[in-house]
């Protein structure tokens, strides 16, 4: 018990980093995902192709590789050098990656909205963005919530990949303590903290689903 209390502060500061990556990725990727999915179904073909290519690359390569590329690769590009701080690099890679996944989920959601909803809005005179904002997105949210929930829980755990560019997250804090003190206790604790985090996510998602159950 004494040992646990001793290592807990470092684990908790790691948890803060994990939560920061988690929070900002969600906040940015969800709205971006909506926009990208609209671009994917755009009638302007070059845009739709470009977006498809982006989604293909993001879903087709490991997130770990993308992290390494953003942090170590971009500064060494032949013509332009983009240098990120570790934390910014992590966020950039995570947002790009999760936006692609969310975009595909939203695309499915948009596809599930019947043509009649668009026509109903159109004959009332609502323009494209009013229709998207007031009619389509509220209904899409209800449809995609279970799939988004899956990704949200994945994100909690995926955030541990930031260790590869030397960011001090929860898993890294546990790893350090574990190899320093030659014990598995810190890693067990890390597991418990991840479980608690996903428990909170599950709980919030359930409340959201309940909120959306006011209509059918």
């Amino acid at each position: 018990m004494h040992y646990i209390l001793e290592i807990l502060p470092s684990l908790l500061s790691g948890t803060v980093m994990t939560l920061k990556v988690f929070f900002w990725t969600l906040v940015c990727s969800l709205p971006l995902g909506v926009l990208v999915s609209l671009g994917r179904s755009s009638r302007f073909k070059p845009l739709s192709w470009l977006v498809s290519f982006y989604i293909w690359v993001m879903r087709g390569t490991p997130l770990l590789l993308q992290l390494i590329f953003v942090f170590y690769g971009l500064p060494n590009m032949p013509f332009f050098h983009i240098v990120f701080e570790r934390y910014d690099a992590a966020l950039f890679a995570f947002i790009l990656n999760y936006t692609a996944y969310f975009a595909e989920i939203f695309r499915g959601g948009f596809g599930a909205i019947s043509k009649g909803q668009f026509e109903g809005a159109k004959v009332l005179g609502l323009n494209y963005w009013q229709t998207i904002r007031k009619i389509v997105v509220p209904q899409v949210l209800k449809i995609v919530l279970p799939s988004i929930g899956n990704e949200v829980i994945n994100l909690v755990k995926d955030s541990s990949l930031v260790y590869v560019i030397g960011l001090g997250d929860l898993l890294r804090a546990g790893n350090i303590a574990s190899s320093r003190d030659v014990t598995l206790v810190p890693l067990l604790l890390v597991g418990v903290i991840y479980l608690l985090l996903t428990l909170v996510c599950t709980w919030v998602l359930r409340i959201l689903e309940k909120h959306f159950s006011y209509y059918r």
């Binding site: 019947s114 026509e119 109903g120 809005a121 159109k122 004959v123 009332l124 005179g125 209904q139 209509y215």
Partner: peptide
């Protein structure tokens, strides 16, 4: 014409197309 200021024509659809939410 979507830019028209007033809606001249209203429609009651066969399956109504009400907004469920």
């Amino acid at each position: 014409d979507e830019s028209a200021k007033e809606r001249i024509v209203g429609v009651v659809f066969q399956d109504f197309n009400l907004f469920p939410h």
